[in-house]
Design a protein around this nucleic acid. Structure first.
Length: 289
DNA sequence: ACCCAGGCGGGCG
DNA sequence: CGCCCGCATGGG
């Protein structure tokens, strides 16, 4: 076990904000404790809700630092994205919520699964796939403590009906073709995380991955904060807040995001999304005092 | 019973 | 281009 000193970190808000690692990780609210399986094995995090973070597992310190973006200067980021009272309120409500950095392949499957779906059911489907196709990871006593996220090859070898049995529904064909494509045509691990345009260009070539899902992959799979995924929540909220309730083209919303929040717009996106999804009430009046 | 959910591809005008 | 439709499925 190691202790990390972290500023502005909130495990619960991060877990509840619907990101890949939280789709199959297990969170205990009473203990403020998260455990999950990463590449290296089993990781456990216990947070008292404060600045002290206990982590354990193989290479746990490095894993957690990268996964939860602990080197981000949240005060600086908050300052840059606090452009109106809605975002300020969101930051106040969910202070310490972090974006996470996840395996690009895992992120791809998670967000293909997310289309026309809800967070609760995404969790169910992802957990089903992990249980069915992942490799077991053992604890000290030799008991199965969890499973890895399935490699593309494990998905490739799965039958269509096995995938359907996980609850993937009409997305099964996309998940399967993504596994093929990412094995034969595109090495996700060779893409440059810092080159947004190139990432977007390559990732949307995956069948079943459009503009929104690609932005999710770039944001949470590559950690590139220039990505600004526009889902139903973001679209509705931003139209209400910033466009007087008028329906906008995606292009206009992307443009405003860049103007307002610049290179930190990915963070603004996550705070807007989580606030919109949890509070549900979004009105134009919210930013007019 | 009905409606919705972190969209997408395809078909049409 | 823009618009519209179907899509599997569990939970509210």
């Amino acid at each position: 076990m190691e202790v990390l000193d972290v500023g502005l970190f909130n495990l619960r808000h991060t877990f509840e904000s619907g990101q890949p690692i939280t789709f199959h990780g297990e969170y205990d609210q009473a203990l403020d404790r998260l455990h999950y399986v990463s590449n290296g094995g089993l990781i456990e995090i216990v947070s008292g809700g404060g600045r002290r973070l206990e982590v354990s597992g193989k290479n746990a310190r490095k894993e957690v630092e990268v996964r939860f973006r602990l080197s981000d200067n949240m005060r600086h980021i908050y300052k840059k994205i606090s452009t109106d009272s809605f975002i300020s309120a969101s930051i106040k409500n969910y202070k310490g919520m972090r974006l996470t950095v996840n395996d690009p392949w895992e992120t791809t499957v998670c967000f293909i699964t997310s289309q026309f779906n809800n967070v609760k059911r995404i969790r169910l489907i992802i957990k089903n796939m992990v249980n069915k196709f992942g490799s077991p990871v053992y604890d000290r006593n030799g008991r199965i403590a969890g499973k890895t996220f399935p490699e593309p090859d494990a998905i490739r070898r799965a039958t269509f009906s096995e995938l359907m049995a996980c609850g993937t529904g009409f997305r099964a064909k996309y998940i399967k073709s993504a596994a093929d494509y990412c094995t034969n045509n595109l090495d996700l691990y060779k893409l440059n995380p810092g080159n947004y345009d190139n990432l977007k260009e390559e990732i949307v070539k995956i069948d079943g991955v459009g503009d929104k899902v690609a932005d999710c992959i770039i944001l949470m799979g590559y950690g590139n904060l220039e990505a600004f995924p526009i889902d139903v929540w973001i679209k509705r909220t931003m139209e209400n807040l910033y466009f007087g309730g008028k329906v906008q083209k995606m292009e206009e919303i992307h443009k405003l995001a860049e103007e307002n929040w610049g290179k930190y717009r990915g963070y603004a996106n996550q705070y807007l999304f989580h606030s919109a999804r949890t509070n549900k009430i979004v009105t134009y009046d919210a930013i007019r005092q």
